[in-house]
Design a binder for these strands. Structure first.
Length: 701
DNA sequence: GAGCACTGC
């Protein structure tokens, strides 16, 4: 069937068309220093600097290190970086920049007076890089080279090169905004523009300037990015020079469709089977779709079709991949397929950056992604299927050429591609800023309203966050200046959304801190509930025993209590469709939050069987996130009268309580409230009489 | 009457 449907692609080979081709062109923009594998401008041999005892161990690691393209440019690079306060470094994948630059700087003596920090957007990356570089330096992780991520600090007094998540460095900046420990901060993967990296841009820039003014040890800042579009980075860091490093990416052929595809799922299916019938079975396929439901449906269809293929056609091993898939099933994408089987991995954008799979020869890119958008008019975050940006499309394409040359089928026309946005909108312009502002205020930045963001969030957006922090009682307005109240300062100590931090701080008043710690931990990690669509009935019947008519929070609390009672038993998790990995994480988060409470000398009490106090506590801290039942049986939020609905995943889905607190609004097809708790309207008025008086006035007008 | 991209502290 699909093999007859006709392949939607025009055969077009476009060598050197994108940033991934070998013949990478010079990046656009001003001062560009070319540093290529053959030495670029000059091939001077640099005298060996503080080279450790590597020569005593003529092992493969060192050889490999020297064979990296970057090695030839080492001397020149080091000379440049040593003389510069700030630099932007572009390196294609495989250039070795992340593992080598920190070592070059260290060997060049830059780590002598302070630590060299290298930030990463993801924990696993920070950990594996530290391990890798430790190996290269022939030391144990945690000695010369270490890492710091949440729950895990593997550093010591000897640590000179430290890999850490961007969020972790940001948190460190709260207690020391000048980053005094560090002589150099390398912001890696800057092109990803995570909210943490974006805030760090401003933090390191300010620290650099202030340290200079105070005559302290200078702070060197290196921004590393994979994309060539780095004008913004360079401009932001006062015209910092851009250094270009050649990589070792294999060539990738790109095919566009002749016609726009109105049904990208069908087009993907056709493409997969076209490839499957033509290519040797050892070559695997990676398909990018948008979400769990789509991926599961497509996986099923592929398996069904694969059963009825003509003789001589390879077998097919179809593997779905998305973040909420249980860990054991995620791992299957790394295992080799049995002989004669082709792996077809159907994935969300998790395979774009977070998970790298070897052996991918073909990438099928639908050009679609599910992502959060911020709607400045309604102030709502909307989760919607949309077009990827050009940068994202290149990232997906690059997944085909990691070990050898590859092929990427783009299920859109070249004209369509040209109309894609150049870059993904940075996260900082797409999400709630309350947490970021709280952190900046905790760092005592002089004025959050004029903070030097590389890409400024809209003023509405900032105002909304300020309003939220104000409602939580975190802000003090003094002489036109915003500062934190004592409560606000305490809130900033928790690695949580501000409203959850406030919930914890209020809990002693309701004698239920133990329970609130559990609930907040459960809400701040990915869902602990696993809901395979194919086993829905089974899931529902097994979950009945935990369900509380008081809502999702109490239900989750019941599940956690039982989990603890069975000692975190894995079989219990499986039988009850509980994601054990996430549950373990909940326990870790809870321990961390409890620690912070203890350090603040907060009394930690349990409400025992009393759930009303827990709900009162939630009502008092989340009063700005409430909805009321309307006469027509629908719900509307209390503050803006936005029509909302109970999310189908809620235990209250079939119920109609009069008054609800929710923890999140999610706009998909409808505006859904997630994680609901039944509350008494009186508690809300009690919690914020002033707020609700104002609400009443606005509703009358 | 019907659904949840991905990170991170």
């Amino acid at each position: 069937m699909p093999e007859e449907a006709g392949f939607p692609h025009a055969k077009r080979f476009r060598p050197g068309s994108g940033p991934l081709s070998r013949s990478g062109s010079c990046p656009p923009g001003g001062r560009v220093v070319m540093l290529t594998a053959d030495g670029g401008g000059g091939r001077r041999q640099q005298p060996p600097l503080a080279q450790p005892s590597a020569s005593l161990y003529p092992e493969a690691v060192e050889l490999q290190r020297r064979s990296l393209p970057i090695f030839q440019a080492r001397g020149q690079l080091l000379a440049q970086l040593r003389s510069l306060d700030s630099a932007v470094l572009i390196g294609e994948t495989g250039s070795g920049k992340t593992t080598q630059i920190p070592q070059y700087l260290y060997e060049g003596g830059i780590g002598r007076q302070g630590i060299i920090a290298v930030t990463q957007p993801r924990r696993v990356a920070a950990i594996s890089l530290a391990t890798r570089v430790s190996d290269e330096k022939r030391t144990e992780v945690g000695k010369l080279v270490g890492y710091t991520v949440r729950f895990d600090d593997v550093t010591s007094e000897d640590t000179r090169i430290k890999f850490l998540t961007d969020g972790m460095l940001l948190r460190e900046a709260i207690s020391d905004s000048l980053l005094r420990k560090y002589s150099c901060v390398i912001l890696d993967e800057a092109h990803e523009r995570t909210i943490h990296t974006d805030v760090l841009f401003g933090v390191v820039k300010a620290a650099q300037k202030r340290r200079k003014e105070l005559g302290k040890l200078p702070l060197k800042v290196i921004v590393m990015s994979a994309t060539m579009d780095v004008d913004l980075f360079s401009q932001y860091f006062n015209g910092a020079p851009v250094l270009y490093l050649e990589g070792r990416q294999h060539p990738i052929q790109i095919f566009y469709t002749k016609q726009p595809q109105h049904d990208y799922l069908h087009a993907a299916l056709v493409s997969v089977f076209q490839i499957h019938q033509e290519a040797p079975s050892s070559q695997d396929i990676l398909v990018f779709l948008t979400g769990q439901e789509e991926i599961e449906a497509m996986s099923k269809t592929c398996r069904d079709i694969a059963k009825h293929l003509p003789d001589g056609c390879p077998s097919m091993l179809v593997l779905p991949l998305y973040a909420s898939l249980p860990y054991a099933q995620q791992l299957r994408v790394f295992q080799g397929a049995p002989k004669g089987y082709r792996k077809v991995i159907i994935s969300t954008n998790i395979a774009e950056t977070s998970i790298t799979i070897t052996g991918i020869k073909y990438v099928v890119d639908t050009g679609m992604v599910k992502a959060k958008k911020y709607n400045p008019d309604s102030g709502l975050e909307v989760l919607a299927v949309q077009r990827v940006s050009k940068t994202q499309a290149w990232q997906r394409t690059g997944r085909a050429g990691r070990e050898e040359s590859g092929i990427c089928y783009r299920l859109y026309t070249e004209d369509e591609f040209e109309k894609f946005e150049k870059m993904t909108i940075p996260e900082i312009q797409r999400c709630n800023l309350a947490g970021v502002l709280l952190q900046l205020l905790a760092m005592k930045v002089p004025n959050v309203l004029t903070f030097d963001f590389m890409s400024k969030p809209s003023p509405d957006h900032v105002q909304a966050a300020i309003a939220q922090l104000d409602l939580l009682g975190a802000l003090e307005h003094k002489d036109e200046q915003l500062t934190l109240t004592p409560v606000g300062r305490k809130m900033a100590a928790f690695p949580l959304e501000p409203k959850f931090a406030k919930t914890i701080l209020l809990s002693p008043k309701f004698h239920c801190t133990e329970e609130i710690l559990t609930i907040v931990s459960l809400l701040s990690v990915d869902s602990v509930l696993y809901n395979p669509p194919s086993r829905r009935d089974e899931v529902q019947s097994v979950r009945k025993k935990f369900i509380s008519s008081e809502g999702d929070h109490i239900t989750l609390l019941n599940i956690y209590r039982t989990f603890k009672n069975v000692g975190g038993n894995k079989d219990w998790c499986k039988e009850n469709f509980v994601n054990s990995k996430n549950m373990m994480l909940v326990a870790e988060v809870r321990a961390q939050l409890r620690d912070i409470c203890l350090k603040m000398s907060m009394p930690i009490m349990s409400s025992r069987g009393d759930t009303e106090n827990i709900r009162r506590c939630l009502a008092h801290s989340l009063f700005m996130s409430t909805a009321e039942l309307q006469p027509d049986g629908t719900y509307a939020t209390t503050d803006t009268h936005q029509p909302v609905a109970i999310h189908p995943s809620s235990v209250l889905f079939h119920c109609k309580p009069a008054c609800l607190v929710y923890t999140e609004l999610l706009h998909t097809n409808k505006c859904y409230m997630r994680d609901l708790c039944v509350v008494d309207a009186d508690w809300l008025y009690e919690a914020a009489p002033e707020y609700f008086r104002r609400k009443l006035r606005t509703s009358r007008s």
